[in-house]
Amino acid sequence: MAFEQVKNFVSRHVSRRIDVRFHDVQISSFPEIKTKREKISVYPLKAKTQVQTIKPLDFKTELECKVQGFKFEQGLLKVRGGFIKLFTKYDFKIRKVEKIKPVRPKNSLRQIITIPQERMNRIKWQKLRPRVAPGEMVIAWYGPIVESAVLKLVLNKQAGTLLIWYDSRSRKFSTRGLFLCRKLESGSRPEWRWV
């Protein structure tokens, strides 16, 4: 080392030269780059509760909650409940369902006697025709009607039917037909004819 220093001193002052040294710098290896990954395991925080049998159960002391081996402390869980008591005494009455009671029909003969009988116009079926004057036509026939028992006759113009009120005390039974005729003149009124 001393020799080298002397040599350099002499060379620098005498020949005005200095040694230049070369050193090949080589990186032998790069540092290893690693990604920092963390594996996160997610476990459901759900307690598995199994009902094994139906029996009076004291929830406060026997219920156990475990998640992946982690056991919750009983004090963290608020479980409400109590013993399930079985009925030992039934409080009900047996009632008998009655059969549907028979109905008591009402008598209303007076009411229905006031309702008139109704005859339809059967002119299309009636082969007989009354004698009509020239210019006169038959437009309806109603029957059979017990003429002697009739109290009132009313023509229902809307329905084209004849309403008949009979005297219920009448003993007459012979029937007739009632034609409704009309002259083909303006202003003429229909005319009833018993046949």
């Binding site: 109905v103 008591r104 209303s108 009411q111 229905i112 009979y166």
Partner: peptide, 13 residues
């Protein structure tokens, strides 16, 4: 003649 002799009816059940 159609003249009523007897008429009976029930209420609705």
């Amino acid at each position: 003649r159609g003249i009523p002799l007897d008429f009976r009816y029930t209420d609705y059940i």
